[in-house]
């Protein structure tokens, strides 16, 4: 099954007034893989994310998400919460967006809202404390506990999310996204602000998610050590256009990518390549 595309972005365009943030972007991410979206600051990566997760309505193009059971969704036609609810795309944010006044456990419970809402009979069964609701609640707490354990925050389950150290908040946000049982997990700079040890832990976590095989990952990341270590596939953006697409090794050696990161014009690329001994 691995190898079929889960996400196919075709000719995606996003304009804000006169500013073209993304233009004619096409790429695909495959089931069971970690796909990285990289590029210099302002390349339009987060805009792509916001289009995929429904926070922006793309100006043009299509985004198609296919589940393993063959169901597929045109994400640009679904609006905001349905992308997460129906198409099962979860995301994290560049600047962490936890519910700071709620405990770590509560954060993970909120993430299971839709499942719990059904179990609570749209609140009415829950209000009278029906046994079916109680068991659903217990298993939701169990799922949260499993995730808290996986991210090493079991001891801090009952602490306010806003009180957790930065690195813990990053992992909690990933756990929260995972509690929606997503098919595709979109991570916006998950390693930003983490130290080397925390980054390594993050890589491990992401690889363990991949190993389970139920969730594919799309990530934006600046930390190249993380990208190169865990990605199966890398897409490089610059000025809203795709400039490279392939394995980490392939991308690392691409002249245009180097130029984009070093900020030189195309005709200087040859010179740069020579300098770098490529």
């Amino acid at each position: 099954m691995s190898g079929d595309p889960i996400l196919e972005v075709d000719n995606l365009a996003m304009r804000f007034g006169g500013i073209v943030a993304v233009n004619g972007l096409s790429f695909a991410a495959r089931h069971g893989e970690i796909t990285a979206l990289i590029g210099p600051n302002g390349a339009g990566k987060t805009t792509v994310f916001n289009c995929i997760t429904g926070f922006y309505k793309p100006t043009g193009g299509t985004i198609r998400l296919s589940h393993r059971d063959g169901k597929s969704y045109q994400l640009q036609r679904l609006n905001d919460f349905r992308i997460s609810k129906i198409a099962k795309v979860a995301r994290t944010f560049q600047n962490i967006r936890l519910f700071p006044g709620m405990t770590a456990l509560e954060n993970l419970m909120v993430a299971q809202h839709n499942a719990l809402m059904r179990a609570s009979g749209l609140t009415f069964l829950g209000l009278i404390g029906a046994p079916s609701w109680r068991s659903a609640e217990a298993s939701a707490i169990e799922l949260a506990r499993i995730w808290l354990k996986r991210i090493g925050l079991l001891e801090r389950a009952d602490d306010a999310a806003g009180n957790l150290p930065y690195g813990d908040q990053r992992r909690l946000e990933i756990a929260r996204a995972m509690c929606t049982t997503p098919a595709l997990l979109c991570l916006d700079e998950p390693a930003a602000g983490l130290n080397a040890r925390e980054s390594a832990g993050l890589s491990e976590l992401l690889m363990s998610i991949r190993a389970e095989g139920n969730t594919s990952i799309l990530l934006i990341e600046h930390d190249m050590s993380v990208v190169m270590e865990i990605s199966d596939h890398v897409v490089v953006l610059d000025y809203g256009v795709k400039i490279a697409d392939g394995t980490p090794q392939h991308v690392r050696d691409d002249a245009r990518v180097i130029a984009a990161y070093l900020g030189v014009e195309d005709d200087e690329v040859a010179a740069v390549e020579q300098e770098l001994g490529l």
Binding site: G54, F81, F93, R97, F99, H113, T123
Partner: peptide, 21 residues
């Protein structure tokens, strides 16, 4: 219940709520 937690989550961060479906 989930509805009450969703209310509080809404108060905390509406954008995150939408991202969670």
């Amino acid at each position: 219940l989930p509805i009450g937690r969703a209310w509080e989550a809404l108060r905390e961060d509406e954008v995150a709520c939408r991202a969670l479906g």
